[in-house]
């Protein structure tokens, strides 16, 4: 058996964290949304974007792989490279599978007319609302992107511990604040909005894919320095 496949199986031993929780949390969030909208019914249509909880949980999966599972993985005679590539391969596999699940749920959501109350839970306007194959691709890319982010953050924590992680997050906050200030000064919010609207789902997916590649590269550079 290929070492990368073994690493993937190694992660999947913890079925709860890697399979049950991502779907479970999303379904739980869905149930709450459904309940609220049934009780309240504010407008003819409700856009919650609740499917995002699945994407956010992928960052948790990435972080778990980099922190809790890494030491025993390396003890079992796996190189950092194999561990990383196996983990990323698993993330890609989960991205394909969970992406397909999102698309299926979208299909049902559409057919059921938003679960009978016009609820948009699995569909997100502009980005996850097109043809099924585009939604599948977009879901896949964003799921991998989130895993890559969690993975890198976890590796930064393993390598440089709390101080490193705080610096890592502070740096991102600074970049975001700087970008916000610049856009505000230039009075550019309208143009930013137009830019993303103009990009469409595929354009945004492309940007996310590029970002994912950058994060995956950074994570790889970091794991090569990690000691356990």
């Amino acid at each position: 058996m290929n070492t990368l496949v073994k690493v993937g199986r190694y992660h999947l031993v913890d079925r709860i964290s890697f399979l049950i929780l991502p779907l479970g949390i999303t379904l739980f969030s869905f149930a709450i949304n459904l309940l609220l909208f049934w009780l309240v019914v504010p407008e003819p249509e409700g856009h919650t974007g609740g499917v995002m909880s699945l994407f956010i949980y992928m960052a948790v999966i990435g972080a778990l792989s980099a922190t809790r599972s890494l030491p025993f993985g390396l003890t079992l005679g796996v190189s950092r490279r194999s561990y990383y590539l196996g983990t990323v391969a698993l993330a890609a596999g989960l991205g394909v599978a969970f992406g397909l699940w999102v698309v299926l749920m979208q299909l049902i959501e559409r057919l059921a007319d938003g679960w009978g109350i016009g609820l948009h839970f699995f569909r997100v306007t502009l980005i996850l609302d097109g043809p099924w194959y585009v939604s599948w691709l977009t879901s896949f890319v964003f799921l991998v992107l989130m895993t890559a982010y969690g993975l890198w953050a976890g590796l930064v924590f393993r390598r440089w511990s709390v101080l490193g992680l705080v610096t890592f997050i502070a740096a991102q906050v600074l970049v975001l604040v700087a970008a916000t200030l610049v856009i505000t000064w230039l009075d550019g919010w309208a143009r930013v909005g137009e830019f993303f609207t103009g990009l469409g789902a595929l354009g945004m997916t492309g940007i996310a894919a590029a970002l994912a590649v950058v994060l995956l590269g950074a994570g790889f550079a970091t794991i090569r320095r990690v000691t356990v």
Binding site: D14, R68, S69, F72, G77, V78, S79, R81, V228
Partner: peptide, 21 residues
């Protein structure tokens, strides 16, 4: 970073951190 060598070794360490297994 040499898988072929690493898999011929086993390391039992007292402070081993295990995943949620």
């Amino acid at each position: 970073e040499h898988d072929a060598v690493l898999r011929r070794m086993v390391f039992v360490r007292e402070d081993q951190v295990f995943p949620d297994f």
